[in-house]
Nucleic acid binder design. Sequence first.
DNA 1: GGGATTGTTTAAAC
DNA 2: CGTTTAAACAATCC
Length: 272
Amino acid sequence: MPELPEVETVVRYVRPKIVGKTIQKVVPQNNYDKVFATHTVRQFNKLLTGQVIKNVVRRGKFIVFNLDRGHLLIHLRMTGRLLLKLSEDDKPKHLTAIIYFKDKSFLYFKDYRKFGRLYYYDSLDYINNKLGIEPLSKSFTGDWLFKNLQNYKRQLKPLLLDQSFIAGLGNIYVDEALWSAKLHPQQIGLSVSRKKADILHSAIQRLLQTAIDNQGTTIINFYFGKGKSGNFRDQLKIFGRQDKDCPRCGTKIEKIRVAQRGTHICPHCQRI
DNA sequence: GGGATTGTTTAAAC
DNA sequence: CGTTTAAACAATCC
């Protein structure tokens, strides 16, 4: 379940290995042509062939390959993985695409649930218009969060998951951030005080940065490189810890549903 | 075989 | 009518 820290980890892993390479072709695997979200297979290749990867960056949960002209974007969704080499347990039937480089090397897109997608855009305007603020950018401040929370009477959980509000948060880090700030996921945005907004802002930035420093969180399926998993899982306070004790007050952690999503809360620390 | 899992898009409800 | 919520969708595993 790659969220911002996991995507950033992947970007940092592949960047030094593929920057400078020239794309020869991009081939869907197992007849899964819809892995290309924006174009047909033919169109996609026409646009990409011969282009050099100038840099690899992250925007929200998108992996962005900056090319000579235009951008190749990859979204891992739930189970997508980028591999430079295949190992024994990488079954061919789980591959959805292979990028061939001019130097005879490859980049494999493995995705056993096949929700992940590749996109091509001439400009990043399209996704920049759809995505909200980058939570690790300088412009994301406590002041920004307080002001913008006031525009919504939505519940905090679905609001924080909304990529057009803040780009990059997913189920894990939203639950962790709300627990850290002692905010209930069903509290509505405009009722959050200035002080609480500051605390939530700090929690989000601290969690994301610490998770990146620990190469992300592996719950089930996040791996990068040669089977390496994220180490942040050990530092999760509440996600996946239902029926265990709250690390802060000892109350039993509950798993509830908020906006159709599994949500972990401490009923003592987090109240509306 | 039903339910859980994800983020995004689309449809419905408020 | 704009905002918010729910459902649909992709596919797989247990």
